[in-house]
Amino acid sequence: MKTLLVEDEKRIADFVCAGLREQGFSVDHCDNGNEGYERAAAGSYDVIVLDIMLPGRDGLSVLKGLRRAGNATPVILLTARNELDDRIEGLNLGADDYLAKPFFVEELVARIHALVRRISGERQNVLAVGGLRLDRITREVAWQGQTVDLTGREFNLVEYLMRAPGRVFTRTQILEHVWGYDFDPSTNIVDVCIQRIRKKIGVDRDGESPIEAVRGVGYRFRKLKADA
């Protein structure tokens, strides 16, 4: 997926670029609004990640210019959380999503995937790994052919882990994605929710749950042995 990152703070741009590339994105980066606009207008990007505070044209002006010129590339705005005026203006100007700083790259990746899926007409609705099958539209879940009834939070959690089998997600990354609001990081709600999911799903022929705990860190979706 071809991504343009417009972010002036080099140290932020560094880890965002690295994180996105690690997850298979191709990333172009520029550090000011003028160049950002030129590149965005000229290039054919799948998605643009745009900081608001930029030297040269600011992020909102870049966005406005693109939309006025008929460029409909999906845009995710990076903004301070609850810099609400910016957020409201951004959404009115045609941003497709926004992400508050500080953010997890993992969350940015999830948002980009969701956005591109939405824009491209919801092609990848069904996620299937191992014996677990999950339909993002109907929100139906099946484990080895048997329907599993998950609550909203449980569904979102499984979907988040399933997106990258074998990759470990920390409790705070999961909290941020599934619950969204400020939880005390010492909460055990993620562990409880995982236990409930595991109980509902059950185990495979080898007696293993598709969701693995990584002690002291978090959880991951079991990678298929063939892929390992």
Binding site: E9, R11, I12, F15, V16, A18, G19, E22, K101, P102, F103, F104, V105, E106, R167, V168, T170, Q173, V214, R215, G216, V217, R220
Partner: peptide, 20 residues
């Protein structure tokens, strides 16, 4: 900004080291 950098770098490091 420093919090964003700190969190981003930690996240990056977390995924770079062996699981568990």
């Amino acid at each position: 900004t420093p919090l964003t950098i700190l969190q981003g770098r930690l996240e990056q490091a977390l995924h770079a080291v062996p699981s568990g």
